[in-house]
Write a protein that binds this DNA or RNA. Structure first.
Lengths: 258, 258
DNA sequence: TTTGCATAAATTGTATACACTGCATACAAT
DNA sequence: ATTGTATGCAGTGTATACAATTTATGCAAA
């Protein structure tokens, strides 16, 4: 009997139905990381919010989510708690959770903090960057240049660009602070990168930031990064102004409640 | 039968033993907020870390904590997850949690971020502060002046001073970013305020910050706040240097495992 | 009709049972 | 002696049962 050391289990309990469900849920990406169900739940809910399948302001209950995700309340609960501490959900004791909603004022506050943190990251990056880091950033911008009309491709590239800068800045607290703000960007609605004019301008600014980093000019990197954040805010404010004046192209999203 | 609408319960299940335990655990402060056990657990663990009853680097298991706190694993689990997202714990799947430990490098990173955020908060506060805010800050500094040799009294006053500044700054993202950093300060060891010289200097800087706020001078508030953060780092570095050179007065802390 | 209260329904909070994982250790085969 | 495999144990991950709480509903009294 040369079964694997693990195959002895079924003798004890039920012929194991839950394991199948779990594995099925986990290995969707194929990588087979063996993520916990709570992580799966967390990612799925986040994704649903990001993609607008769950509207901001929607009311979520543990039971609904558990049914939707095909798991019990326990991991869902854990995921909801995590999303609350990220600021995506607002949990009211005994009364379920609301998907956080941010108004224009919140947006300004958020960008004020970004304007503080991101230039500092760019400056630190310029101070620390080695040849390999610069090569990585160059590679991303090369791909970015080729994807200016393909938002779906632009999203991860943009993300990677900023992630590398943070990594090279080598300050875990700065990274966490910025991550804390970034995670709430989905609540602001559609990405600026859907706007082609903005995508082009952002790409140019990325190139300027990289140029500053290449020459080790921290002050320049800081200045361009600040301008980058300001430009991003300006684009969003302009869109809000347009939407407010009746040109709303925003599609209404479903409530997410089954 | 004019019992309160709530008293009918015991008829159904066990004669209600758990409610007593819970109420006992909850209402320690007396305020009777009816906090959940998870919150109690969270606060207790945090406090144990802050007070050094649990050493940084200690290994914590759900079962140990549940036994210690007299509750089941579920709320403890929730608390541990929360503390992880605050950065106090490092949870390794299937292998328990470690109390995060920060070295001198981490400390520098942390203060670099504080030097970014806290001056901005002070500046925003100076821009927004009304008469009532200033009166509140004055009241705190008056108490602070009378408590310079009483660290136990100084801690909450110091906290309140900074909290009010954040509140008046009216930027929830700035507040959350700073809170995220503050929550890890206990991991750095004893507070600077135990040092009377430092306490006096910090108090003087508080007064300068308040003066700048009173006169609505954002730039001045920013500058003093930056100096305040720098001074705090300097004191900590000096203490580390002393400890490193063999003058360690640091008492070893217990492991926290029952 | 309206008000007050008690009950019912819905949902969260907590406890507990059980399967699974990771590691240590003992045993068997070479 | 050494290596590979099995086994036990400690601890986590998940499901589920139950208790507590909030909100809604119905019914009686004014």
């Amino acid at each position: 009997m040369v079964t694997r050391s693990r195959a002895r289990r079924p003798a004890r309990g039920i012929p194991d139905d839950s394991a199948l469900r779990r594995i099925a849920a986990r290995d969707i990406p194929g990588g087979g990381d063996a993520r916990s169900l709570a992580e799966v739940a967390c990612d799925e809910i986040r994704r649903a919010i990001r993609e607008g399948r769950v509207a901001t302001g929607a009311h979520l209950t543990e039971l609904d989510l558990a049914a939707w995700l095909g798991m019990s309340r326990t991991p869902v609960r854990e995921a909801m708690r995590r999303l609350q501490s990220e600021g995506l959900l607002l949990i009211q004791p005994f009364r379920g959770a609301l998907v956080m909603r941010l108004d224009a004022g919140d947006m300004r506050q958020m960008f004020a903090v970004r304007e503080l943190l991101e230039p500092a990251a760019a400056a630190a990056c310029a101070a620390n960057a080695g040849a390999a880091d610069i090569a990585a950033l160059r590679a991303i911008l090369r791909q970015e240049a080729a994807s200016l009309d393909d938002p779906a491709a632009l999203f991860p590239l943009n993300r990677q660009f900023h992630d590398i800068i943070l990594e090279v800045a080598r300050n875990q607290f700065l990274s966490k602070a910025i991550a804390g703000v970034y995670s709430l960007i989905p609540l602001l609605g559609d990405s600026n990168l859907l706007n082609r004019r903005h995508a082009r301008e952002a790409h140019l600014q990325h190139q300027q930031i990289l140029a500053a980093i290449e020459s080790g000019d921290a002050a320049a990197a800081e200045a361009v990064a600040r301008e980058h954040v300001r430009h991003s805010l300006k684009t969003r404010l302009a869109r809000i102004a347009m939407a407010g004046s009746g040109h709303s192209k925003q599609k209404t999203v479903k409530t997410g409640k089954k």
